[in-house]
């Protein structure tokens, strides 16, 4: 299978001379869900933010398909087909649900009616609440809107930063169910998660990141079944909850 996204020896950080990523590499196959796991401070969120153009890259390359997007500004990444859902503050609270979705479509000059119809079919709750301000939505609904906002521009690769954070187990299950449905529509997904067990349950591949570099890469099922991996990197908190 071809690579949807390739990251090679990436070094990146928020402050000059203080890299968080120290040569991280990643090879994401088209159509896969890849879970990025690891302890706190491993650089998981920084990795996808750097890919999205939100954290300065000091070394290494990022390719989306065959295209080098290492130096592409964040707003142009969306046009290239890279979607990103931040962990928090991931909707425009003072805009309506409809405006949150319309804005991205209008900026990219996409066929509005078709795209919105597809999105509302996938997220029927949002269709019912399209006139509400995004800030009035519940945590779970906000997360759905955040995913829908990134999805409305038809990304090839969708990156999500801890989409389960702050959600109840029932809502986490619902969000992850949607991610599986999105994957089935042909979108490649990169998922940064603290809830490792839940992420591994839907992922095809997994990468365990430690100190800014990948420590383990493999099939999600294999990593989930490996007791040593579970003890060292997945933690007790993730065990057996989902």
């Amino acid at each position: 299978m071809t690579a949807a996204l390739t990251v090679t020896a990436l070094e990146a950080g928020y402050e000059p001379g203080l890299p968080i990523l120290r040569g991280a590499s990643l090879n994401v196959r088209t159509g896969d869900i890849v879970a990025i796991l690891g302890p706190n401070g491993a650089g998981k969120s920084t990795l996808i933010k750097a890919i999205a153009g939100l954290v300065p890259i000091t070394a290494g390359r990022v390719h989306l398909g065959a295209q080098d997007i290492t130096a592409t500004p964040a707003h142009l990444m969306v046009r290239q087909g890279l979607g990103f859902v931040p962990q928090t503050e991931n909707v425009f609270a003072d805009l309506s649900v409809a405006d949150n979705l319309d804005l991205a479509v209008a900026i990219l000059k996409l066929a509005k009616k078709t795209r919105l119809a597809e999105i509302y079919a996938l997220f029927p709750d949002l269709a019912r609440q399209r006139r509400l301000m995004a800030g009035q939505l519940s945590g779970g609904q906000r997360q759905m809107l955040a995913v829908a906002r990134a999805l409305v521009v038809s990304p090839r690769v969708l990156m999500l930063d801890e989409p389960s954070a702050g959600l109840s187990p029932r809502l986490v299950a619902l969000v992850f169910e949607k991610l599986v449905a999105i994957k089935r529509s042909g979108v490649t997904i990169i998922l940064v998660e603290q809830n490792a067990r839940a992420a591994l349950a839907i992922a095809d591949q997994a990468v365990i990141l430690v100190e800014g570099k990948e420590r383990l890469v493999g099939k999600a099922r294999d990593l989930a079944d490996d007791p040593q991996v579970a003890a060292l990197y997945l933690g007790q908190a993730g065990g057996g909850r989902h």
């Binding site: 964040a74 707003h75 931040p86 503050e89 405006d99 991205a104 209008a106 900026i107």
Partner: peptide, 20 residues
């Protein structure tokens, strides 16, 4: 709307495709 969105959240505006 892009102006309002950028004022609310510049980072999210960028990943929404807005040229901040």
């Amino acid at each position: 709307k892009a102006m309002r969105a950028t004022a609310m959240n510049p980072l999210l505006a960028r990943v929404t495709g807005i040229d901040v």
